[in-house]
Design a protein around this nucleic acid. Sequence first.
DNA 1: GCCACTGTTAGCAT
DNA 2: CATGCTAACAGTGG
Length: 270
Amino acid sequence: METIVRSLSPRLQGLRISSFQLLFPPLLRNENKDVLEELVGARILAVRRRGKLILIDCEKNLTLCFHLKMTGRILFCPKQEPLEKHTRFIISFEDKKQELRFGDVRKFGSLLLVPTSEVLESEELRSLGPEPLELDFSSFCQLFKGRSARLKSLLLDQSFVAGIGNIYADEILFRARLHPLTPGSFLRKPALRRLWQSTRETLASALAARGSSIRDYTDALGKEGNFQNFHQVYGRESLPCSSCGEKIARLRLGGRSTFFCPRCQKRKRP
DNA sequence: GCCACTGTTAGCAT
DNA sequence: CATGCTAACAGTGG
């Protein structure tokens, strides 16, 4: 997500929207389906991210909020490039041979146009927890007080902490040597310290590698990331643990596959 | 063909 | 409230 924003931001800033095509109307979640018309003539001011939402700020006090869900893709590419089958939305720009495309195989993705001045107070953003990289250690500890939910569930809970998905939750827990089913409140200072550090380091490494490209995930220019080559547990069931050689195990939690090393990530007080 | 699985989460049940 | 499971959808691979 962050990798997409970073690749997109310098390309989009300053461009003036000349037209758009909404190929799959349910993508747009606004009550008023005509709101997109207001975009025409507006210039793009900034591209930013909050949690897993991509926010494109435009003139006229308009912000486009994209959620990619499972299979959403944002691509900034030459108009002449053939449309992918699942293209749902296209924005064209004045004097520009490239356009912005939103593709989404499973149709879970969403787009909401909100006034920039209200975006921070919008329901979408207000319900989000803190950005993990902006938390100091003591605020991080506070989050876990009185939380009986399992660590993996907490990391995935966007109202607990924003922006962490299935891959990074597993990778973070492995690097912190914590079992995914450990209740949050069981953690004491040393374990919390490891988890805080691991969160920072895992996300920082993933960003440095420009994200994980499994299947066809890429940045907004179609370029793949490399972090999948550094995954220690995700997708590595029954392969040896890089640290101890034990076979990586897998369990299901809330419908999500969860990978971990049973030897390095011992369950606390079962 | 059938079944399991998929960078997610809203909505519902407990 | 907090927590956990299921469904929404379309495609892929065994």
